[in-house]
Design a protein around this nucleic acid. Sequence first.
DNA 1: ATTGACCTGTCTATTACTTCACAGTTTAGG
DNA 2: CCTAAACTGTGAAGTAATAGACAGGTCAAT
Lengths: 182, 182
Amino acid sequence: MLATMNTCTITKLARAFGLSRSTLLYYDRIGLLPPSGRTAAGYRCYTQRDRQRLERICHFRQAGLTLADIRTLLSSSGKPNAKLLERRFRELGGQLLELRSQQRLLASMLKGVAAGKCPPAVDRVMWVKMLRAAGMDDRAMGRWHTEFERRAPDAHQEFLVSLGIPESEIQRIRKSSAEGAW
Amino acid sequence: MLATMNTCTITKLARAFGLSRSTLLYYDRIGLLPPSGRTAAGYRCYTQRDRQRLERICHFRQAGLTLADIRTLLSSSGKPNAKLLERRFRELGGQLLELRSQQRLLASMLKGVAAGKCPPAVDRVMWVKMLRAAGMDDRAMGRWHTEFERRAPDAHQEFLVSLGIPESEIQRIRKSSAEGAW
DNA sequence: ATTGACCTGTCTATTACTTCACAGTTTAGG
DNA sequence: CCTAAACTGTGAAGTAATAGACAGGTCAAT
């Protein structure tokens, strides 16, 4: 008899929050989320309070804070400590820029592959498929062209040509991209 | 006498590529970038070829490939292996989405802080400052509003109100955001 | 009671580094 | 020539956030 109606075991808690058992074990080990009790058999017993704490933890994790930061936030509870948030926000901005540059870089690499010796049939259709697979919708794809046009117009032109897109459509795309009118 | 004009020491190489000495030591240890030679004293001697290899490594790292993948790419040189790139591209798309959601979340948290008890004077000016500090330019800020409006119109409204922006301007901003006309 | 599925705890491995400690080497200045 | 700073090497240990292996515990159905 474990669940006294209000407690739950580690795997159940993990599933409820979309985490892995290992993660909760880890959180226990570092003292971030020790279960309120144990059963006779030594099983961890998580209470409602534990669940609430975990919810806050997940919330902060979602926002990308480190466990150390979260510990600080939870212990010095009350004070929102906007400094931490602001710092993280700044970091996020950098990360976004970095990711976008990665994407551009990868794009050019794939372009190189497509244009180079080993042409794995990366034509327009294939590209659109890949971009969709990467989670892009039409709007995002428009933004992608806009970014490409803004940062590297020449490469953008080259890229479109490499996809075998007719000149007339290239003009249209680049014009739209330049205006950001998506 | 170390530098025979074409070789350089570990720290110099590290500085040239914006890496730490430890990183290069690590790359040597795992056999990813062993220096071409050593001085009599045993100091690592990096040649031009080593630098080129490191440049490729950095290039791939920039794109987010793991060192294992990079090793594969560099050893099976020639074959572009578009599979790896494509896979990474997919991952990137996911990461970008994730980051954007983080940003939104953080935004709402900061909003809460601003609206809540501990008001660290997060008004409009402060926000713009923060967003700029996060690397946003006007265009990016427009996109940010657009995203906000698209995904959470109510929260967007609330947010703008919380910044003390007059109703008339809020209308204007939200209308523009909805159209994505930035 | 027993089987089999699923659960538990602990311990170890992973990635890409970083930090540390300690001893030898090079270099610039006096 | 000497000394102090700055560099070098090795090796060990630490980091985040899990993932996986493993032996054993628990539970529902038979």
